[in-house]
Design a protein around this nucleic acid. Structure first.
Lengths: 226, 226
DNA sequence: TTCATGGTTCGACCGTAGTCGAAGCATTGT
DNA sequence: ACAATGCTTCGACTACGGTCGAACCATGAA
C-alpha cells in the first residue's frame, strides 16, 4: 500500500507558510542570508534558523558560508521546477494571494526565475531559439546546436566555461503565468546575466520583476522577436 | 514581500501523510471510493472523509457520485504532473520509503500513472512516436500529426470520440523512475486501455504495476520497439 | 581584549490540525 | 417499512510543530 517515494515529507516542508515565503523569495535566484529570509517571511531569526535547517536537511536548499554570513539558495533546477509547477497550479486554481496590480503586470511580462528570464519575454526568447534551430529538443533533454552555439558565442557568452560546470546547460522550465516552457539551466542564467551586463535590463530590488530599458527592449526585440 | 501564488496552501494539502497516501493511490488513475482510500491510507472512514473534503476544496481531486458511492480521482493532468514531479524529487534525494524489491523492479518497467502507461515501456512507446513523426512537439504542447492519427486509428482507437472531449489529447508527463517524458493526456489513456483490451497486459490489482503477457510483450516490441 | 553582529540552541508556550467514537443522513436492497 | 451500507458531522482528545525570549557560540572589527 505504500508505493513510490515519500511525497509527504517534501510537500510538508513547502507546506508551511513561512517556509513557502522563503522559497518564493529564493526563486529570484539570488542567494539570501538567514536574516534577510527571516524578514521576508515575517518571523524572527530564531524560527527562521530552524526552518532553514529543515529545508536544508530536506535537500531543498543549498548553503554557502561566507565569513559570518550564511547564504541560502534553491538547491537545483529540479527543485526550482517543482516550485514553479506548484505556482502554476496555485495560480490556476484562482487562489492568487495578492490582488493583481501594476506589479503583477510587470511580473507577467518579465521576471526572474531561479536566475533565468521568465514570463512573456522569457517565452519569446525561448521560442525564437527553437524557431532559429538553436536548440534541439529530444524527449526530455535540450541540446544546443552548432548554430545555436555560435549565436551564444557572438552574444558574448563564454560557452567553454559554462560547459566545464557540472550543472546542465539547457533545461526547460514551465512558466506559471504563461503555462509554457522557457529556457532554464546554466545557459538560461548566463543569457539573463549578459543582458543585465549589456544594460538592457535591471532587476527591481526586493522583487522578481525584471525591468527593461526602452533601448534594451528594442535590442531584445531586434534580437529575438523575429 | 508576498509575490506570486499561494504555494503553501497546496503543498500543505499534499504534506499530510494520510492525504499523500491517498493521492499516491489515485495516481493509478482508477477512481476510488472513500472507504477504499481510507484503507489505503490506514485511517478510519471519518478522518478520510474530512481529508477528502479538503483535497476536493483545494482543487486536487474531482469527484463523481454514483448511487451511495463517491468516487474520487485526480482532478486533472496538471495535478498528476505535480505529483510525479514530487515523486521524482523525493526519489532523487534518496529517501525512498520502501526498500527496493521485485515489486519495485516491475514498477520501473511498466506502471500506470493516472491511467496512462509509465515506466520504461511508457518511454519506449513515447520515443517511438517521436521517431516515427507521430507527434509534433512545439514549445509545450504536443499535437498528433496526420501520420500519427492514421496509426492511432489503425490501432483501434476512435479519435473522433477522443477529440470531442474537452480534456487535452496529448500531454507530456515526467517519469519519476526514468526522469524522462512519456505520453499522457486522453490519447495516452486510450492507448493503455486498448492494450489491455487486446490482452497485451493486465494491471496487477492493488498496485500500479502493469504486467505484460509474453505474447503482449512481443506485440508491443514489434509495434513500438523500432 | 572587548565589543558588535550573525546565527544557533534551549526551553516553554500555544494553537492548529489530525484522530477517532458516536450519532446522524442518505441511498439502496429486501 | 425496515435493515444495511456508504458517507458526513459533531465533539472531544491529543500531539506535533511553529513561535519567541533568553542564553549561547562564532566570526569579524576596534
Amino acid at each position: 500500500m505504500k508505493d513510490g517515494p515519500d511525497i509527504a515529507r517534501i510537500a510538508a516542508l513547502i507546506g508551511d507558510p513561512a517556509r513557502a515565503n522563503m522559497l518564493t523569495a529564493l526563486m529570484s535566484g539570488k542567494a539570501l542570508t538567514a536574516t534577510e529570509l527571516s524578514q521576508e517571511a515575517g518571523i524572527t531569526l530564531q524560527t527562521a534558523s530552524s526552518h532553514l535547517a529543515k529545508l536544508d536537511a530536506g535537500g531543498l536548499l543549498s548553503l554557502r558560508k561566507q565569513g559570518r554570513h550564511k547564504y541560502f539558495s534553491i538547491a537545483n533546477d529540479q527543485v526550482a521546477h517543482l516550485l514553479e509547477t506548484l505556482m502554476g497550479l496555485a495560480a490556476g486554481s484562482g487562489h492568487l494571494r495578492t490582488r493583481t496590480g501594476p506589479r503583477d503586470e510587470e511580473m507577467r511580462k518579465a521576471r526572474v526565475c531561479y536566475n533565468h528570464l521568465a514570463g512573456h519575454m522569457g517565452i519569446v526568447m525561448y521560442e525564437s531559439f527553437l524557431r532559429k534551430g538553436f536548440l534541439h529538443v529530444a524527449t526530455d533533454d535540450l541540446t544546443l546546436t552548432n548554430t545555436g552555439a555560435s549565436f551564444v558565442d557572438g552574444f558574448g557568452i563564454d560557452l567553454k566555461e559554462l560547459k566545464a560546470k557540472k550543472s546542465p546547460l539547457c533545461r526547460e522550465c514551465l512558466d506559471w503565468s504563461e503555462r509554457r516552457s522557457h529556457l532554464a539551466g546554466s545557459l538560461g542564467r548566463s543569457l539573463l546575466a549578459r543582458m543585465e551586463n549589456l544594460g538592457w535590463a535591471k532587476r527591481v530590488p526586493g522583487s522578481r520583476v525584471v525591468r527593461f530599458t526602452k533601448a534594451g527592449q528594442a535590442e531584445f526585440d531586434a534580437t529575438f522577436q523575429r
